[in-house]
Amino acid sequence: MAQPNDLLAVLIDADNVSQTRIGAVLDEIAKYGTASVKRVYGDWSKERLHGWLGAARDHVIQPVQQLENVSGKNASDIALIIDAMDLLHTGRFSGFCIVSSDSDFTRLASRIREEGVTVYGFGARTTAEAFRNACDQFTYLDLLESARQDVAPTDAAPKRMPGPKMRGDTTLVTLLRTNVSGASSDDGWANLAVVGSLMRKQQPDFDSRNWGYAKLSDLVREIGLFTIETNQGGGGVRVRDKRKA
């Protein structure tokens, strides 16, 4: 489980992500640890990236200049990958945050995970499935923006889906029931935090906010297929399939 003192390296592809999104991304990253390295890669001679320089200053992100020497070749991606491997080999970081929707980073994410280091991906809903699945956890940018009042989302954030409609989502229902069963003890009860962790491992882009719910517990209550209650004396929330009652 992520700890507040975990050191994270945040690597941002400026060609692929708007600077207007970075505040929301950094707010989310703060939940997983301390962003001790923050770098954004791009060719700052390009007019369309000029807004990034102000955002980098405001959020204390180091801009890394990478001239595009040959048209059509993304030198920034290569620079980001080289820096990621250099940082990985220091052994200092518990996690890497790759902020991009570019599937070219799929192998980078896989390589970092081979070292037992967590990879958090952040990108658009158009991000290739291969890159999403190469991360331990992948979060869609529009979900983060919807929680901030100072940002006008560029993508429509999901609206809260009612229980009957969620019950018709066979993929969601199967994922929930399978993992509640897998995490349950002999009495059928499972710790909801463990269930959520298992679901992320199977589907890295799983997030209750995709259905409009800030918390997994809110989604589980609304879907109506499970009994959910707070553990007596602490210990979080537990859940049980109503069919097992």
Rank of each mutant, 00 (worst) to 15 (best):
G163R: 10
K165Y: 08
N179Q: 13
V194L: 12
R221I: 01
G188H: 04
G163Y: 10
N231S: 13
L219G: 02
T230M: 10
K201P: 01
G212A: 04
M166Y: 01
V195Q: 08
S208C: 08
K201N: 09
E229H: 04
A214P: 01
L219M: 03
R240T: 09
D207I: 01
V173M: 12
M166H: 05
G168R: 14
K242I: 09
V237S: 11
K242C: 01
M166N: 09
L192A: 06
P164T: 15
I228A: 04
V194G: 05
Q203Y: 04
Q202R: 14
K159T: 15
G182L: 06
K242F: 01
L175C: 02
R160K: 15
T178F: 03
G233E: 10
K201T: 06
D205F: 06
L219W: 02
F206P: 00
V195G: 10
G196F: 02
P164G: 15
L175F: 09
V220T: 05
D169Q: 12
K201W: 03
S217G: 10
G235T: 06
R160T: 13
S185H: 00
I228S: 05
P204Q: 07
R177N: 07
F206C: 01
T230R: 13
D187A: 08
L219R: 01
R177Y: 00
G236D: 13
I228P: 02
E222S: 12
V195D: 09
S181N: 07
L216Y: 07
L192M: 09
S208R: 12
V151I: 15
N191K: 15
L176V: 07
M161G: 06
D241H: 05
L192K: 12
K159M: 11
R200V: 00
N231L: 14
V239F: 08
S181A: 10
D241M: 04
T170E: 09
G196C: 07
L192S: 07
D169N: 15
G168L: 14
D169P: 05
G235V: 05
D205H: 06
I223Y: 02
V151E: 10
R167V: 07
A156P: 11
G188E: 10
A156G: 08
P153N: 15
P162Q: 11
W211T: 03
N231M: 14
D205G: 07
A183D: 06
L172N: 07
L176H: 01
A190H: 10
S208Y: 06
R167N: 08
P204G: 11
G212T: 06
R238K: 14
L219K: 00
T230D: 11
Q202M: 05
G234A: 02
E229A: 10
P158Y: 15
G188A: 10
R240N: 02
N179F: 05
P204H: 02
Q232F: 13
S208A: 15
E229I: 10
W211R: 10
V180K: 08
K215C: 04
E222V: 11
N210D: 09
G233Y: 14
G196Q: 03
